[in-house]
Design a protein around this nucleic acid. Structure first.
Length: 288
DNA sequence: GTTACGACCTGCGAGC
DNA sequence: TGCTCGCAGGTCGTAA
């Protein structure tokens, strides 16, 4: 599933291949892929044709192509989205949703998405700070730990102020962005914290450690090209990452804990899974 | 205002 | 062999 490291791998690939390329055609093949765009498929295309891509940026799991018009094509990969650079004339992918061609680049850019949780829309860029433009609809997303302007102390304060369980807070993109289910479980394992621990019970030091571990594990994943469990996450060339081998908790039910040897367990959490070591990450006595 | 939870969606694997 | 059902999970809208 694409979380921050996976999105960053894709962003880097796109920045390399599509910066300064001029959009010639845009074909929307599935309406859900542009469900956050208020116009039609035709108006989506017509607004983009002739525009030059000037940069590719990211905040958390949101990525956007900056355009010469001052607008941006905002992209979220959802659970199964991919952005691929493909040679023209190749057999289209089964779940190809949007195809871009360029007037000054022979290859095509394909947005492919099996589960259609991802999508693209066109947005206006607004001034976030003196030197920073972000799409209007990304304004509510907090800075991620890789952002040079990320403020750890402020993030710790926001996290502890939230009256909820720690994992729910880690997944809240308005507090800290980029962390999804996999890296939340990994950060919690590294910090020996149970997912249901109330945020109010975390000391400042523990909350800071947790966010530091989240950044650490995502940095390691990024260095290995991201985490892949299947063909659903690949870079712009269709290559999978290797970080699955580096995971200590996620997806490792009934395997021994790398720290103490106890068998890891899987809990049901928010209609999804949470993996932990029952010895290193015991259930808190109270969840209030 | 804040928090919790269901819906969205498709492919795969398990179970019958 | 073929069918049904549960599971995967990020985001958003709605209910409490």
């Amino acid at each position: 599933m694409p979380e921050l490291p996976e999105v960053e791998v894709v962003r880097r690939g796109l920045a390399k291949w599509v910066t300064n390329k001029k959009i010639e055609t845009v074909s929307v093949l599935h309406p859900r892929a542009i469900r956050n765009f208020p116009g039609t498929k035709k108006s989506f295309s017509s607004q983009l044709i002739g525009q030059k891509i000037t940069a590719v940026n990211r905040r958390g799991k949101y990525m956007w192509l900056e355009l010469s018009s001052g607008q941006a094509v905002v992209t979220h990969l959802g659970m199964s989205g991919q952005v691929l650079i493909q040679k023209p004339g190749q057999e289209p992918e089964k779940h190809l949703r949007i195809r871009f061609t360029f007037s000054n680049y022979k290859n095509e850019m394909h947005f492919v998405d099996q589960r259609t949780f991802g999508g693209m829309h066109i947005d206006e860029l607004i001034q976030a700070t003196e030197n920073e433009l972000i799409p209007r609809n990304v304004g509510h997303i907090a800075r991620d730990p890789f952002d040079p302007a990320f403020d750890l102390a402020q993030a710790v304060e926001k996290l502890r102020a939230k009256k909820t369980e720690i994992k729910r807070a880690l997944l809240d993109q308005t507090l800290v962005s980029g962390i999804g289910n996999i890296y939340a479980d990994e950060a919690l394992w590294r910090s020996s914290v149970h997912w249901a621990t109330p945020t109010s019970r975390l000391t400042e030091a523990k909350a800071a450690q947790l966010l530091t571990h989240a950044k650490e594990v995502m940095s390691e994943a990024l260095a290995q090209g991201g985490t892949s469990f299947d063909s659903l996450y690949v870079d712009v060339n269709g290559q999978s990452g290797y970080f699955e081998r580096g995971l200590n908790a996620y997806g490792r039910e009934d395997e021994p804990c790398d720290r103490c040897g106890r068998l890891l367990v899987r809990d049901s959490f928010m209609n999804r899974s949470s993996f932990r070591c029952p010895k290193c990450q015991p259930k808190p006595r109270t969840t209030k």
